[in-house]
């Protein structure tokens, strides 16, 4: 099961990429844990999560080919 994870803003800077394919992740909590393990700097950052372009508030089950976006807030104006 392949999931695409998109990184926005500072998250892309920290991971050095704007997207990444992940296999074997069944829900968003697990996905979060996986990317934070791979990029420990992500643990300090605040971000919201969207699954297939819908913002989610709690752990969400993932289906094959789902697209998960990690979205940090920006303050600049």
């Amino acid at each position: 099961m392949k999931i695409t994870c998109l990184f926005f803003g500072q998250l892309a800077e920290v991971t050095g990429r704007s997207s990444q394919k992940l296999t074997g992740t069944t829900d968003t909590d697990e996905l979060k844990k996986r990317v934070q393990q791979q990029y420990p700097a992500l643990e300090k950052l605040t971000f919201s999560i969207a699954v297939n372009k819908k913002m989610i508030q709690q752990n969400t089950t993932l289906q094959p080919e789902d697209e998960v976006a990690l979205l940090p807030p920006f303050s600049g104006g």
Binding site: K44, T46, P73
Partner: peptide, 16 residues
């Protein structure tokens, strides 16, 4: 607040 319930700390979200 529905989008970002918790503000980040100043270090993790730098300004322009």
């Amino acid at each position: 607040r529905d989008l970002f319930p918790t503000p980040p700390d100043a270090v993790s979200a730098p300004s322009c």
